[in-house]
């Protein structure tokens, strides 16, 4: 498992096309709202629930308060991506440091650290989040914390397992024999070999974070009006499903595309970095 093997080789077409889709969505989400003449908070009761049209640049129509859905959806996408990114980075940093430390030190410290992870796993996070929301009131930061707190556990376990097996590999023993100090062993001989799996896992964490944020928002525990994420938009669209299906369908389609793209990207990267998958037959 390492990224060096794929250096110099073109990425698989699936990975390249999903990357293109993701970049396009991000670009539109970043630039789109500024290009539109409308803004997302402007409630206009004369155009409640109007269907998508070029008229007035309401490409995605309007919602039940007459706000422009195009701008709101793009802002929601931006928010969703931001939440996902921050949550993933939080889980990456905590998870990799925690897992690599536990794996490399090993022994009793490893046992204590991993039992702590196990006990966190045992906590019912949805209830915990509900509790947090009730106690601290609804807080934007809290969503990051909650999602990051769930995701780093998986990352820590994966990194620890990988470190444990890398530590026993002969090239690490060879480095020890040469006299390479521990810090340098971790940096030069272990970390680069973790990179592949961490990268893959990160791209698989992002859709989880997106989904979790949407789920919280859908339950009304996430972002609050007038802020929007794809989750709150989907939640808002449910009530008008029969009269104005686009209010639900457009943000959910974007959510669907995003999730699919990240999952494809993760799978594609996993295949691309898996050494065994690309080994040629030998007799």
């Amino acid at each position: 498992m390492n990224t060096e093997r794929s250096r110099g080789r073109p990425l698989p077409p699936l990975v390249r096309s999903t990357l293109a889709v993701l970049l396009a969505v991000m670009l539109v989400a970043l630039l789109g709202p500024g290009l539109s003449p409308n803004d997302g908070v402007d409630a206009r009761f004369d155009r409640i629930l109007s269907p998508p049209s070029l008229d007035g640049a309401h490409y995605f129509g309007t919602d039940d308060l007459g706000r422009d859905l195009f701008v709101r959806t793009l802002e929601g996408t931006r928010m969703t991506l931001l939440v996902a990114l921050v949550a993933s980075v939080v889980s990456l940093v905590i998870g990799v440091l925690y897992g690599a430390t536990a794996g490399f030190i090993g022994g009793r410290i490893d046992a204590v650290m991993m039992r702590f992870v196990d006990s966190l796993y045992a906590m019912p996070f949805i209830f915990l989040v509900i509790l947090l929301m009730v106690v601290f009131e609804q807080n934007f930061l809290l969503i990051f914390v909650a999602i990051g707190a769930v995701n780093w556990l998986d990352m820590a376990r994966i990194v620890r397992g990988q470190t444990l097996s890398l530590k026993e590999r002969e090239f690490v023993a060879a480095a020890r024999l040469i006299g390479v100090p521990t810090g340098r062993i971790i940096l030069r001989h272990i970390a680069p070999n973790l990179l592949g799996i961490v990268l893959v896992y990160l791209t698989l964490t992002i859709p989880q974070a997106i989904l979790f944020e949407s789920f919280l928002s859908f339950l009304g525990l996430g972002l609050q009006e007038p802020d929007a994420s794809l989750g709150t938009l989907v939640a808002g669209g449910v009530s008008t499903l029969e009269t104005a299906p686009w209010v639900l369908l457009i943000p959910s389609s974007i959510l669907f595309i995003l999730l699919l793209a990240f999952n494809f990207l993760g799978d594609g990267l996993r295949d691309a970095t898996d050494v065994r998958a690309r080994r040629s037959p030998s007799s």
Binding site: N2, T3, E4, R5, R169, E170, F171, A173, A174, A175, L177, I178, G179, R188, H189, P192, N193, V275
Partner: peptide
């Protein structure tokens, strides 16, 4: 000590496994 480590070296059975794959 470092000079003792230098004096004793080992060659492993699996040549590929004893070389860091990323270097």
């Amino acid at each position: 000590p470092l000079n003792r480590k230098r004096a004793i070296q080992l060659v492993f059975q699996d040549p590929a496994g004893s070389l860091s794959p990323t270097l």
